[in-house]
Nucleic acid binder design. Structure first.
Length: 130
RNA sequence: AAAGCAAGCCGUUCUAUCGCUGUUCAUUCUAAAUGGAGAGAGGAAAGUCCGGGCAACAUAGAGCAUCCUGCUUUCUAACGGAAAGGAUCCGGUUUACGGAGACGGAAAGUGCCACAGAAAAAAAACUACCUUAUGCGUUAUGCGAAUAAGGAAAAGGUGAAAACGUGAGGUAAGAGCCCACGGCUUUGAAUGGCGACAUUUAGAGCGGUAAACCCCAGGAGUUGAAAGACCAAAUAGGCUAACGCAUGUAGGGCUGCUCGUCCGAAGUUAGUGGGUAGGUCGUUAGAUCUCUGCAGUAAUGCAGAGACUGGAUAAAUGAUAGAAAUUCCGAUUUAAUCGGGAUACAGAACCCGGCUUACAGGCUUGUUUUUAUA
C-alpha cells in the first residue's frame, strides 16, 4: 500500500544532476521543491530525493530526524495525491525536496505543507503540459 | 539522615497501526513476487588527537634536514595509553596520608630577563659608608660641611628574581676573603635497590629561563576503504576475420595542368581488448565478549567453559497515537488525588586499542562535614 521502496528513491547520479540543472522549482516554506518531467527506466510514477543542508543543521541527528519526517509524510500521501494523477496522465517525475527551515518542524506541520506541495505540483504539471 | 567530593555502573519501558535495511524458510517455471520467522546505533557511534591491523605504491646501504617523544621498571600487537614506583612542588595533625604535572641537559655554546630599580650577570656606585687630596669655617695635629680621585654590594629602597643563608673573625670601610653551622648543584667512592634513586663520605662549586635557539638519547617511507580487487549494459570509437568493391573501384595527397607516384574507403555480419553508467567483493567472528580457576602488589597474562550474524551507500535502524515509569511545579493538603510540564548528550560508514570532550536523571562504593538518636 503505502510502501517506499528503493525504486521510488532517486539514487542515480546522472538523473540527480539532470534534475538540478534542468528542473523547475518553487518554494513553499519550509520546503523547496525541484521537479522535472522525465522518462524513467522502470515503471514507477516518480523518484524522489530528500535533502537537508548541513549548513543549517550541524548535527547528524537533527538532519536524520527531518529527513525521516519528510519521508514518512511523502510515503503516506504520495499514492493518493500524486501517483493516481501521474498514472492518469501517464507521466513520470523526478522530484527533489529541500528543507530550508531554520528550526526542526513537527510532523504535523511538515505533513500539512507536503500535502499543499503535492497539490501545487499537480497544477504546475498541468500548465506545463498545456 | 542530609549535603559536598572521588571512583565505578546504568542511561526510559510497553501496546496498536503503517513503513525501512539485511538474514533465513516456504510457495510459484528462472527472474522476481508473496507469505512466515527472526535480527537491526552508542557510552560516548562524536572530536579525528595518538597507536595498530589491513591495502596500494615506494624501497641497495649510510648520513643530513624535518617532525615526534623525553624520571624508572613493567604491561601491551602498539602507543603520546595503563600499572607500580622515584624525585620535585602543594596541602596536612609536618607522623600517617592526600593532591599536581611536556619530570633529559643551564658545568657545551649563543641569546633573553618587561616595568621598577644604582645595577638583571666576565658586572655595576643613586643615597648613605670608608680612605686620600684640595681649599674653607672654627681658638683647634681635632671636628664640621663642600669638591675631586679611589675603595666598597655590607645598609636603603625596587623587583618574579639582587650574587647561597645566619653568626663570629677580618678590615679604613667591606666582601665565601677566612672560619663554624646550614641549604642547594655536581664529580668520585662505599652500601642498599633490576632501576629511577636513597644513605654515608671526600672533592669542586653557588641567579633564572630549554613551552628561546641549542645539545643528548630514542623513534618516524608515503597515502588512506573515495585504499584496493573483480564483473560489466547501451552508445561512440579501436583491432581482427569474412562478405562486398577493385586486373586497387569511388575518393584523397603531391602538381598550375597532365603523366606518374603514394594513401585508400564507405556498407553488412561475426568476434575481441580497453573502458563509462551500474554492480559484486573488500565489509563485519574479532588483539571479541561473559564467567570460573591459577600467576602477579597491579596493569595484565595463561588455562577451561559458554555466548555472538547491525552492515546502510543521495546512506536503513523510523513515524503517528495511547499508556506506564522517573522527576519537577501548582492546587486540595496526613497519606494520597488532580492539573500542567520535563526525560539529556547524541546517529555506525573498513575494523580494533586508547585519549579528549558532551550528557536529563538514577544506582553502588569510599570519604569529609553537619544534624539527630544510642
Amino acid at each position: 500500500m503505502n510502501t517506499f521502496k528503493k525504486e521510488e528513491r532517486l539514487c542515480s547520479k546522472k538523473l540527480i544532476e539532470e534534475l538540478f540543472h534542468n528542473g523547475s522549482s518553487f518554494l513553499l516554506y519550509p520546503l523547496r521543491i525541484v521537479w522535472l518531467k522525465n522518462s524513467l527506466p522502470i515503471k514507477i510514477p516518480a523518484q524522489v530525493v530528500i535533502n537537508v543542508s548541513k549548513r543549517r543543521f550541524k548535527r547528524a541527528v537533527d538532519r536524520n530526524l527531518i529527513k525521516r519526517r519528510i519521508r514518512e509524510s511523502y510515503r503516506l500521501n504520495k499514492s493518493e495525491n500524486l501517483y493516481h494523477f501521474l498514472n492518469e496522465n501517464s507521466t513520470q517525475l523526478l522530484l527533489g525536496i529541500h528543507y530550508i527551515g531554520k528550526e526542526i518542524a513537527t510532523f504535523n506541520v511538515i505533513d500539512k505543507k507536503l500535502k499543499l506541495v503535492l497539490v501545487k505540483l499537480r497544477q504546475n504539471c498541468l500548465t506545463d503540459h498545456s
